[in-house]
């Protein structure tokens, strides 16, 4: 699979910080409308696309991937025209010095200021985001307010490019990669099962969009498409935190457990069996350092939903430059297509 053949470049370069996913919705609606029977936006802002199944199995499967990305929100202005922000979602404070950003719908360019090393070399503690400021090139508060509004979202600036072979680089693959996988899955439907494809909002601020899916969708099973960490930097082999979590190029990663979910054993086995049957590589994500996915709320919604999460391994998540392997990404699409085609009710029993 080549970068140019997917929507990945367009979607990952678009701006869509949690609760401000409008730009992403626009692209996705256009991409899916000819491949689904119905599409609507719910009151949270989730896109819910329905694709009627072709078979008699009558199972309803919810697939979810989140549209939002992490970033910052404008919280105030200094008299000298610099801008105060707070982060939306989890961001490592060590990334901020000298970072380039774009602010608001007009994409006003700005930079995080940084005290020159000549006067700050003794400062080793990471500054809190409250103590960082963005400079947009103006000299007073009124001028700043003329360009940027309170509450405007601040986005990383990064181009999506091919690095080498299947390795691509860009921002917001978490989780636009999952969104693109879902679009590709819808394109090659219908499947024997009914598909409810949910492009969710606000995952990064507490899996909020996914919290409202199950009541309306009433699914028999759910699949969450995500990205997950691949930590392959060289490490001391005697250090306790030496797991790479996943390995790039070893296929999509399934989950046994993360902080919010213990994944459904038989449904998970169906993924394994399907991958083995069609010769699709897959790996398990180590339970170590495993935060959570939209599955965390989906699987305990209502009377419970058998749920599996599958992630494309990525390096440097939540940074402006995420690296991903397009082969892993493509294998993930392939696996879910087969999983849906071969899904029968006995695969969901305990």
């Amino acid at each position: 699979m080549r970068l140019e053949d997917t929507l990945l470049k367009e979607l990952s370069e678009a701006h869509g910080i949690s609760s401000k996913e409008d730009g992403i919705r626009k692209i996705i609606l256009k991409a899916v409308k000819d491949h689904v029977d119905d599409v609507h936006i719910d009151s949270m802002g989730n896109i819910i696309a329905f694709q009627r199944g072709s078979g008699g199995a009558k199972l309803r499967v919810l697939i979810a991937a989140h549209m939002d990305e992490v970033g910052f929100m404008v919280t105030g202005f200094d008299s000298n025209g610099t801008i105060k922000v707070r982060n939306v979602g989890g961001i490592d404070g060590r990334l901020l010095p000298a970072m380039r950003v774009e602010i608001g719908d007009k994409k006003v360019p700005g930079v995080f200021t940084w005290r020159p090393i000549h006067v700050s070399s003794h400062e080793r503690d990471v500054k809190k985001v409250d103590d960082m400021r963005i400079d947009i090139g103006v000299d007073n508060k009124d001028a700043a307010k003329g360009k940027v509004k309170l509450g405007d979202m601040v986005t990383f600036v990064a181009e999506t490019v091919t690095m080498h072979g299947p390795m691509v680089r860009g921002k917001a693959f978490d989780d636009r990669a999952g969104c693109v996988q879902m679009i590709e899955i819808l394109k090659s439907g219908p499947y024997p099962v009914d598909l409810i494809a949910a492009f969710t909002v606000q995952e990064e601020v507490g899996i909020r969009g996914a919290s409202v899916l199950v009541e309306a969708a009433k699914p028999d099973a759910a699949i969450v498409l995500e990205t997950t960490a691949s930590h392959e930097l060289p490490q001391d082999e005697d250090e306790p935190d030496q797991t790479s979590v996943t390995k790039m190029g070893h296929g999509p990663a399934l989950y046994v457990m993360d902080r919010l979910t213990i994944y459904h054993p038989t449904f998970r086995k169906h993924f394994e069996d399907t991958a083995d049957k069609y010769g699709i590589p897959y790996q398990y994500r180590s339970p170590q350092y495993a935060g959570g996915t939209d599955a965390g709320i989906i699987h305990i919604s209502g009377a419970g939903v058998p749920t599996v999460a599958m992630s494309t391994p990525c390096r440097y998540l939540h940074s402006p430059h995420i690296i991903m392997n397009l082969d892993d990404f493509a294998h993930g699409i392939d696996l879910v297509r087969h999983v849906l085609t071969d899904l029968t009710p006995d695969k969901l029993e305990r």
Binding site: D42, S43, M44, F72, G76, R86, G89, L150, V205, V212
Partner: peptide
């Protein structure tokens, strides 16, 4: 007076918003 709340608001609004199919 406009206030910015970038995440969990810590108020009843946080519970209410995700009830049922989502409440504005």
């Amino acid at each position: 007076f406009e206030q910015v709340s970038p995440g969990r608001s810590g108020t009843d609004a946080w519970s209410i918003q995700i009830s049922h199919e989502g409440i504005p």
